[in-house]
Nucleic acid binder design. Sequence first.
DNA 1: GTAGGGTTAG
Length: 683
Amino acid sequence: MIANFILYKSRFMNFFYSVARNFSTSTQFSFRITKPEKPIFNEESCSQILDRNPDISTLRKLHSKIIVDDQLNSNSSLSLILMRAYSACKQPTITRQLFDEIPDKNVVFFNVMIRSFVNNNRFEDALLIFKNISSHGIQPDNYTYPCALKACSCSSNLQVGIQIHGAVIKVGLDSNLFVGNGLIAMYGKCDCLVEARNVLDCMNNRDVVSWNSMVAGYTQNGRFNEALEICKEMKLERLKPDAGTMASLSPAITSTSPENISFVKAMFDEMTAKGLVSWNVMIAVYVNNLMPNEAIELYSQMEPHRIEPNAVTIASVLPACGDLSAFMQGKRIHEYVVRKKLAPNLVLENALIDMYAKCGCLVEAREIFDQMRNRDIVTWTSLISAYGMSGQGRDAVDLFSKMLNSGLIPDQIAFVSVLSACSHSGLLTEGRHYYKVMTDEYKIVPRIEHFSCMVDLLGRAGYVDEAYDFIKQMPLEPNERIWGALLSACRVHSNMEIGLVAADRLFQLSPKQAGYYVLLSNIYAKAGRFEDVTTVRSIMKSKGIQKLPGCSDVELGNKVYSFLVGDRSHLQSEQIYAELDVLFGKMKELGYVPETDSALHDVEEEEKEGHLAIHSEKLAIAFALINTEPGTPIRITKNLRICGDCHIAAKLISKITEREIIVRDTNRFHHFRIGECSCGDYW
DNA sequence: GTAGGGTTAG
């Protein structure tokens, strides 16, 4: 025993020397309780500091002090608190050193050690400790099993999970609430919903966590409807859903039905103590179901409800700003991030880059990127896509190669971003190169998205036949995007033969989609086959297919204003049209001739010109010109592809008014400056 | 003295 103690002491002293390097003689640990000149240093004061979540350097200093104090050093309850503190500082290895140096460990030390590993994502290590417990002559208890089960669920380790289930039954702990809940979570995570449900049904004591674990089991496996059924069941048991229920729902909330969204919203509204997490989840529900306006609206209600948004809230709501190109709203949220010092935070900063990118603000996106301490694959991919969408393919490619040099391993999404950047900028050689790099070097099996990029790349660059051959050789069934890319290419390069094939496939895949009929009729119109244009038009009419009306959004102050084709509903309508008249006059002086190819139907030239003049993007541009200071950039979001005539017009207007005009259409960004567009007319 | 479910990005 004495020998053991000496060994224990000497190990601790070694440890002391290693931590003492950081030790300074600061007065940080003077505890002015009774006599200021004599600081009290005892178990209680140490625990107080440790309970306040000290940072790692404070912790090391305190630890050094404890080591030199014989009494405190051999105080096992203090050791336990130290272990927890190191774990909270993400130092499970130090926790492990402390653990190893404790001579007579009871089960509590094992429990804390396992938990430290679990909380720091070292599930294998956690299970190793667990498996070694019995060799120390110690029985796992009702605290040990839930922890070990958590290690299993986090690492989807069904095998060990089942073993634990067996052991639990043997020692009669299967009726324990915490153990039962751990089992439900473990089975749920491992996609064994029947087993999870069995455990739930056999428990004689269930609480809200039991049900939430069951809910999570379904959502983690994409079974949202069944998850909601569980919510209804728990209500029948008179258990109120809580923030945990909301959080459990979130893995499966993408693209669900309006009824399901209403159900979740009702649950959220009925909740008495919502808490921040519920707000965050509700915002995420809206964002993930294409309801960005609702997401921003809910976010704006947090302050009146005295709920302070955190990093998760911000990372959840920013994509909504991106979806709407709500640059000012996004900027305000960015200011909040700065004010509340929420950065550095990788996920949050990535979301900021993406938001700025989707608002067409490359400079701001780049600034965030440059200031980041850590960058992951998402960071790089976000910026690469940003450059790609704006037609800065060279920058995107450069960035991609810098990313490779930085040692990051690109995943399939990173390759989508670089391939798509190449296709938007006509970088045929580079695109082919990276496709080869992806398949040969990184052994990534191409997905439909990669094929679609390649078809787009080849087709747009004029290799329509090769693009078609590429489709024929694909190992996957071509989808709408693939044929859509081909049809687009056929329109640009006037390839009637392949265009008809692509259109035919598209009409089968998506018979109600007006855009494809429009593309086909454009091809006919370009070829002067107006009788065929008329045929397409009558087919559309007989099938009741209507062209989606073009709509352009522009943000002004706190509001987003929408304009439809020929819109005269706006209060400033007269001024807008007057402004356009003036602009058209100046444009004609610069040699503007309306491009009538873009018009759908075979109508008189003059009528076509009139039709084009009132396209929604032109109205939105005029509206922004009237209502903003000279020199302010104008940002427009369009629900369709920008038409050829509006593209020419925007170039000229950017020159005449010396304004930067940024148009985001369904495919990409067009940055118009001094009469030029960033796309270089390649779109 | 220790414990269970669940929230953020390309």
